[in-house]
């Protein structure tokens, strides 16, 4: 879905900086990250481990692990600034307006309570409904996410469910209060291949049905390709490229994205060798001057080593942070 031009975006992140103070100086885990999520849109957030994709999600919902903190930047949810809210107010936004699905379903579910107790509590915390009504809603939700015999199984404890079923319960829990945005952090990574596809389908369908936007954080380009409308590529805490998923996957512009796409073996490719990006992502205390990718980039030139590229608009809703696409300097 293309962003609707007249409406303000549902979520707007502006120049987000997340820092970790350590005794050897402050580490910048996210460095001026800006992006929007429109109503009903699925934004994929990809990157390799340590790129900062999970941190972005944690910063938005105000659950950064100390000593990590938002050092600067702004986060707006439907025109309301949420990065500086008091803890109590933020807690009400979490769950009510922003739902969460994490990688390991066991950490999102309390093993001591039945699924019914957890769902009903969530519904009644955020909505003014009777116990009976909440239960009916909970059963309907479980049924919707594909749990067979939901009316009976709702009184089971989380450990009675298999991994895939548990993740379905978590999705139901995340959507119980009808949030506007769902942040899903590696929702399928802990699951078997044959179950992953089912979970992605459920998540995608139910969010579309309810008009909830999704921020899908994953390292799996395949999942993004099948699910997201737009995709943001993170590298060393900075946005490398953002744009419609088809454009980014089929015609990546940033050299990092190009390398990333080439390095993924697929079921259709025939090359004997995979494209490989030399080296690995730098540690946070060793990010290069200028463009963070320049030491590994085959196109790097003088400017890349001196000056950090900002996101450059490329038309068709695409943005790339790379000096190769700077129109004022066409001498490349």
């Amino acid at each position: 879905m293309a962003p609707l031009p007249n409406k303000p975006p549902l979520l707007s992140v502006r120049d987000l900086v997340v820092e970790f103070p350590t005794r050897r100086g402050t580490l910048r885990a996210l460095d001026k990250v800006s992006f929007d999520i429109s109503e009903g849109e699925v934004l994929g957030m990809v990157g390799e481990s340590g790129a900062g994709k999970s941190l972005t999600g944690a910063a938005i919902i105000g659950l950064l692990e100390p000593p990590g903190r938002v050092a600067s930047g702004e986060i707006w949810l439907r025109g309301e600034r949420i990065d500086n809210l008091p803890r109590e107010k933020m807690r009400r936004i979490r769950g009510r307006r922003i739902g969460m699905v994490f990688q390991d379903p066991l950490t999102s579910l309390n093993p001591l309570y039945t699924v019914a107790e957890q769902l009903i509590e969530t519904i009644r915390t955020h909505m003014d409904v009777s116990e009976k009504e909440a239960r009916a809603r909970a059963v309907a939700l479980l049924d919707r996410v594909g749990i067979p015999a939901a009316a009976r199984r709702i009184d089971d404890y989380p450990h009675h469910f298999s991994g895939g079923m548990r993740q379905r319960v978590v999705i139901a829990l995340a959507l119980a209060a009808e949030p506007e945005l769902v942040i899903a952090d590696e929702p399928t990574t802990a699951l078997d291949v044959s179950v992953q596809a089912q979970i992605i389908d459920v998540l995608k369908e139910i969010c579309a049905e309810r008009g909830a936007s999704v921020m899908l954080i994953t390292h799996d380009m395949g999942v993004i390709a099948e699910t997201a409308d737009r995709v943001a590529v993170l590298y060393a805490g900075r946005l490398a490229e953002i744009g419609p998923v088809r454009d980014v996957i089929q015609a990546a512009e940033h050299p990092y994205t190009v390398g990333l796409m080439g390095s993924i073996p697929t079921l259709t490719q025939t090359a004997e060798r995979l494209t490989q990006i030399p080296g690995s992502m730098p540690r946070l205390n060793a990010i290069a001057q200028g463009c963070a990718f320049n030491p590994r980039c085959t196109h790097a030139f003088e400017r890349c080593r001196a000056e950090r590229p900002e996101l450059i608009a490329r038309g068709g809703d695409r943005q790339v942070a790379c000096w190769l696409y700077d129109t004022e300097a066409q001498d490349v």
Binding site: P278, G279, R283
Partner: peptide
């Protein structure tokens, strides 16, 4: 090709 780790 060795992994690149600056300042190592």
């Amino acid at each position: 090709m060795a992994d690149f780790t600056p300042g190592n």
